[in-house]
Amino acid sequence: MFYREYPPHPALAAHVDCVWAARAPGGGAAHRVLPDNCVDILWQDGAQPGFAVGMMSSSILVASEQPVQTLAVRFKPGKAGLFLATPLNLLTDQRADIDLLWGRSDADRLADALWSSEAPERARLTLIEQELLRRLCDNAGGSPLVQRALQALDHSAGALRVEDLAAQLRVSRQHLAAQFRDHVGLSPKLYARICRFRRAAAALKAAPAPDWAELALACGYFDQSHLIHDFQEFAGNAPERFHFSNRPAA
């Protein structure tokens, strides 16, 4: 399977992690897609409207019976709502056709432009960026509270306790959780757990036979059993049988 990421347009860099392209050969071969604390919008060949894939709380298996080409954008945590105009908790573990979020006319116009051209994939990804830039002009900058919370959780790689985070931000845990679900799509606690899991997954990719207790502590887990529990929940497998995968399609 081909998969490639590109840096976004500079004016989108504060909101977009990357734009990306993928080609799956078909044949029904499945790959596991892991939760990554991001929201994507995907357009797949056939001139169909795109679809948004919300935050994931566990891994999923994706199989393509037929060859499929994908063009997509991946948003930074807490930023997709600027372009989708819907509370992100409504998309968690879901996919929504972009015509329902953007309107049929705009969705069809972009899909036609993406798939009616023989332009290189990077040039077609630029069409997606242009649509995002147009939509960004009509939106505010999101929630400063949630952005501060995200920065703190990411800086700690998920090790910061939600109670301590709320106290640091001088808000109640309940208020923080409500704002976080609307603007991110997950609770702060679940977001932090996925941060820890992703850190451990990256460490396993670099060193596939670690000292498990040492790895758990280095990644912010209380003990090895908590590490094992998160791998079983988020990757569908024990850590010693884990195989790292990207999130190329859904």
Rank of each mutant, 00 (worst) to 15 (best):
P87N: 06
P87R: 04
L88Y: 04
L88E: 02
L88G: 02
N89S: 09
L91V: 12
L91F: 09
T92Q: 11
T92K: 10
D93P: 03
D93A: 11
D93V: 11
D93C: 12
R95G: 10
R95N: 13
R95A: 14
R95K: 14
R95F: 07
R95E: 11
R95M: 12
A96T: 12
A96Q: 12
A96N: 04
D97P: 13
D97C: 08
D97F: 05
D97T: 04
D97I: 00
D97R: 07
D97G: 13
I98E: 00
I98K: 02
I98T: 06
I98S: 00
D99Y: 15
D99Q: 15
D99S: 15
D99C: 10
L100T: 08
L100F: 06
L100M: 08
L100P: 00
L101E: 08
L101R: 05
L101F: 07
W102D: 05
W102G: 05
G103I: 07
G103Q: 06
R104P: 07
S105M: 02
S105L: 03
S105G: 01
S105C: 01
D106T: 04
D106P: 00
D106R: 10
A107D: 02
D108M: 09
D108V: 11
L110N: 06
L110Y: 08
L110E: 06
A111E: 07
A111K: 05
A111H: 04
D112M: 14
D112F: 14
D112G: 09
A113Y: 01
A113Q: 10
A113E: 08
A113K: 08
A113D: 04
L114A: 04
L114K: 01
W115D: 00
W115S: 02
W115K: 00
W115C: 01
S116I: 00
S116N: 14
S116L: 08
S116C: 07
S116R: 14
S116M: 03
S117Q: 15
S117G: 05
E118I: 03
E118F: 04
E118K: 14
E118P: 02
E118N: 15
E118V: 03
A119R: 10
A119N: 00
P120D: 08
P120N: 05
P120H: 03
E121A: 08
E121G: 01
E121P: 00
E121R: 08
R122E: 10
A123S: 13
A123C: 03
R124K: 13
R124C: 11
R124Q: 13
R124P: 11
R124S: 07
R124W: 09
R124L: 13
R124F: 06
L125W: 05
L125Q: 05
T126P: 04
T126N: 15
T126G: 14
T126Y: 13
T126R: 15
L127M: 13
I128P: 12
I128V: 15
E129G: 12
E129P: 09
